[in-house]
Design a protein around this nucleic acid. Structure first.
Lengths: 222, 222
DNA sequence: TAGATTGTTAATCGATTAACAATC
DNA sequence: TAGATTGTTAATCGATTAACAATC
């Protein structure tokens, strides 16, 4: 029990690297590589080997001194840590273009997030099939969440409805919300929320673009 | 010239907060608020006032001791710094669901990123109108980028084609790529690339979900 | 054995926060 | 004036990197 609690006391920066480690390791696994050293893995991700080992150290390490990592074992261990060793039932709320884009992204299921329901308030969309699943009416939300033990909701509804839907999801017992609506959601601390902010992404890109253009102008001046 | 260069030597963490500051300030502007203190603005963003002032300090500060910030001026200054004081011509490559979702997201234009072209390789999509614009054939890519002085490309093509398209964009003179394909793009240092990694987002959420569920189990045990 | 590797701690680096003089 | 505010530097905190003993 103590140990489980500890595996959760990990810096965000480390948590964000776990999926990258897993992704690379799965590629290695696919081409039949059995062992990999921290140096090899770190180089392919453009980070320092000591950072990778430091990250792994939060979970007690996955090998022992002198021996490289066993790819298969490491994949299993990371899946366990990330929480996708067992599939995580997931639902998509909002079947507009974004919702459909995500529903059609089949890697989601492969990566451990099977879509157990797609919902929309628009009667024109209800019943439309997406990857073999009908879009359901919002009325069925609570029922399906309960029945399918949905843990994560991907929220792609308009900003105006996002908080309302989120409240329903929380009440229905959802544990994580991946929010694509351009606004901050309020949720109790027992529900994890991740806001995907398109505006932050494109504006931070714009900042760098501006800097590149300025530097180009400066070089021309010389 | 020295000063311009300096405004680019700013920590990433600060750059990522600039859009959040701008967003809140625009909300204040919309409801007619003229002045705002660092404490008010910081509290609404759930950060420390000293962090906000420290961030602003990278750009020389936007007020003087004793006086709060002038909302209007601050909005203008941040737009200048982010690089959206002038609209930044943008294109979307890939008119699938994700591309259409982004194209339909009208805030993009309001926030300074007018869509000057939407492209797709699929002949069935070419010609379809999205927000008053026809989807163009990929053949026209270079021509439109040049003519419309497109600076940023939003890449929503399948992973298999992403690098090929990116190479064409770089050659055509694009300065920033917002990549939604689930793979890392290679580009010269004169082109800014931002990878949007859905997998990282949902897996880091899953990690937190797993921790919440474990803690709930622990409490039950007591 | 010699060279390479991990786990683990210490050193370094960078980002956040606190403190405060100057100002209104 | 008293209270509040900013710009700016110093202190603190946390994350990254380096170093190295133990091991293969």
């Amino acid at each position: 029990m103590r140990k489980n609690r500890r595996t959760c006391d990990v810096p965000d920066a480390t948590v964000l690297r776990l999926p990258l480690y897993l992704e690379k390791l799965k590629l290695l696994q696919a081409i039949g590589v059995e062992d990999v050293s921290s140096r090899q893995l770190a180089e392919s991700l453009d980070i320092k080997a000591s950072q990778l080992r430091h990250d792994f150290h939060y979970f007690g390490g996955f090998s022992r001194p002198g021996r490289p990592y066993h790819v298969q074992k490491l994949v299993g261990a990371l899946e366990q840590i990330i929480g996708i060793a067992e599939p995580v039932p997931t639902a998509i709320i909002g079947a507009g273009h974004l919702g459909q884009a995500i529903a059609n992204y089949q890697n989601l299921e492969i990566q451990g997030f099977p879509i157990k329901g797609i919902f929309d308030a628009n009667p024109k969309l209800v019943g439309v099939e997406i990857r073999g699943q009908p879009v359901r009416d919002m009325d069925e939300l609570e029922e399906v969440v309960l029945k399918e033990k949905v843990k994560i909701a991907i929220l792609t509804v308009p900003a105006a409805q996002a908080q309302l839907v989120a409240d329903r999801l929380v009440k229905a017992g959802i544990v994580g919300i991946f929010n694509f609506a351009p606004m901050d959601l309020k949720a109790p601390p027992t529900v994890a929320v991740r806001n995907e902010r398109m505006a932050v992404g494109i504006m931070s890109l714009s900042f760098k673009v501006k800097c590149i253009l300025q530097n180009m102008d400066l070089e021309e001046d010389i």
